[in-house]
Design a protein around this nucleic acid. Structure first.
Lengths: 106, 106
DNA sequence: CTTAAGGGCAACTTATCGGTTGCATATCTT
DNA sequence: AAGATATGCAACCGATAAGTTGCCCTTAAG
């Protein structure tokens, strides 16, 4: 169960439609260079590069320089951490709900 | 499966440790007024109020004015939407992984 | 060797965010 | 009625984020 302090930066990296789109495109498991990712996004290469830097900083994406290009690949483990926080809260909620129900029936 | 455009504002609301802490405190199912929530947070009542407004705007929390106070309660359905997006990407990833493995073994 | 392609770095602009302070409003309480 | 309680609204400040542009470096390709 990630703490609020560790989970917040993760959600912050996910708080942008462009970045979500990038992650989704990388979810097919194929690493891509920046130009390939910038192709479909109507943004400047620099803008995409910045977004990838944010994702990389949050650990959601892995950078692997190869030759003159840099390949970016999804890191699903970090996605799982974000899910873990949500699961944690949901579990707390379910637990509280069950407790309430039990109390009413008692 | 929520689109990137609809999921991003949701993640944006989650991108702050104070707000995550608020959600976690509300996960016990008990609606609370602002003062009660501001009590443990070392912040001004106004700051907490703003954070709650953000959470409310994202649909993560329900406002229910009662008398001179306003009760805030968690809305787990919206949390589930955030989870749905993460699940979607994770499923895509797993699928691609399986496809790759099948291709190798073929 | 010359040229083009892929990217990093840095400066700058605009907008938004988190937080504060001050004041006004509505509702309990005595 | 008077005072305290719980909020809301608005203005303001400092920091950060998104995006652009311009320049330089490295690596491939002719």
């Amino acid at each position: 169960m990630p703490s609020a302090e560790s989970a917040a930066p993760l959600f912050a990296a996910l708080a942008d439609p462009t970045r979500l789109a990038l992650l989704k495109r990388l979810a097919d498991g194929q690493p891509r260079p920046i130009v390939a990712l910038a192709a479909g996004s109507a943004l400047t290469r620099q803008a995409v590069s910045k977004h990838l830097a944010v994702l990389s900083g949050a650990g959601l994406v892995a950078r692997r320089p190869r030759g003159r290009e840099t390949l970016y690949a999804l890191r699903p483990e970090r996605l799982a951490e974000a899910r873990a926080w949500l699961d944690d809260v949901a579990a707390q909620w379910e637990d509280a709900l069950g407790r309430l129900k039990a109390h009413i029936e008692a």
